[in-house]
Design a protein around this nucleic acid. Structure first.
Lengths: 211, 211
DNA sequence: GTAATTTTTGAATCTAAGTTAGAGTCATTT
DNA sequence: AAATGACTCTAACTTAGATTCAAAAATTAC
């Protein structure tokens, strides 16, 4: 069988005009609104303007599709938060403020991917959860590093378990996707969350001179 | 004559009373570990030592069963938190400490019902979600009342949106069910959460005399 | 143009799960 | 002993949804 492995012929990649991306977008949207339990391949395909079998040209299975969408969401959140932390400079309080804002904005503002991952990452069958482990760990690394820096510089409140505090803060931010409605401005959520997190995490700044 | 309906006498007959509770326990357990998406009537029945149809003697449908378990969980959390708030007396800081502790202990310590509701309440089909609305609202009323008292007494940080702050705090507590493992002591989670919430929510106490 | 390849589909298969129907067992009552 | 009602079973029905597959449409290469 001489297979004419001359596939992948030429200019544009073999994919259709963004069909794959459209499927991912639709998946993220359905996941973020209906939740994993009520997300079906059939409905995703229908919304994307396709019949269910067409999905299998781009993804090996439903789990693959969902995992790809959630992974993209987790990476998006991590990138935004990491970028915000990096841009904030050496001041850890400023860094935490920036990370809180970045997390909330990407989660509440625009991206169905971000909402999809925060709402569904922990409610997904094991096969998918495993694939998300690395992405999730990378995201937590960003927070861990900043809080470790804060601890070593003596800014954290005494008696605060840094790991537990991190999980609580991330939890508060993640849970926002469950209750946020556009009737509340994102700005006010950001402002309140920043105040809460900063005051909760850090030693009160010394009003007078040195430590 | 179709068949000799003299099949074998089933040995394990009526467990009678307690079966309904056992079904609820099992449902709460499966919900809290696998999540709603992976919870099936069939498996719940099997773990409870029954065949699926037997469930219908106690509950009208799968939705009914799940709603009953989640409702019980939500009421349990509300009762514990309300009792803690009531027992704490007039000091709002003390009340918030007590509510944080009560919430975390019932969620992390013993009750599969509490974990089930915090993990699944927002990931359930609309028919069930509606039934949970009242329970959830009653729970939030407890927090709302205490924070309103704190605000009217001038203890809350300035510029803090009380509603947003409440949702963030409750979110941090709820999310704990997602990451907690027995390797961490509940005590340390409680202590860190109390510190975080109290410092985040309240004006720093005046070290010297009066306000 | 035709051939090759990519993309999509209709139709069928397969599986898991919720549900219904009807009958059997048991403890208790009368 | 007969009757009743509570409880559970087996068997079958039904549906929804994921998946497979061969073939049609659309696109691209030559």
């Amino acid at each position: 069988m001489p297979r004419t492995d001359r596939r992948r012929p030429r200019t544009a990649p073999a994919d259709g005009p963004g069909t794959r991306d459209r499927l991912l977008d639709t998946t993220a949207h359905v996941l973020s609104t209906r939740g994993f339990a009520c997300t079906s391949l059939t409905e995703v395909a229908r919304i994307a303007g396709l019949r269910p079998p067409a999905v299998y040209h781009y993804f090996a299975s439903k789990d693959d599709l969902v995992a790809a969408a959630l992974s993209a969401g987790q990476q998006l959140v991590r990138q935004r938060v990491a970028a915000a932390a990096a841009a904030a400079g050496p001041d850890v309080r400023r860094a935490v403020d920036a990370m809180v804002e970045a997390h909330l904005r990407v989660e509440l503002d625009s991206s169905a991917y971000a909402t999809a991952v925060t709402r569904n990452a922990r409610h997904v069958p094991p096969a998918i959860a495993v694939q998300l482990g690395a992405d999730s760990a990378a995201f937590h690394d960003v927070w861990r590093e900043v809080l470790q820096r804060a601890a070593s510089e003596g800014h954290l409140r005494l008696g605060l378990d840094a790991r537990v505090a991190r999980m609580l803060v991330v939890g508060a931010l993640n849970w926002a996707a469950e209750w946020y409605t556009p009737r509340i401005s994102v700005d006010s959520v950001v402002a309140t969350a920043q105040q809460l997190v900063r005051a909760g995490l850090f030693q009160p700044p010394h009003p007078s001179g040195h430590p």
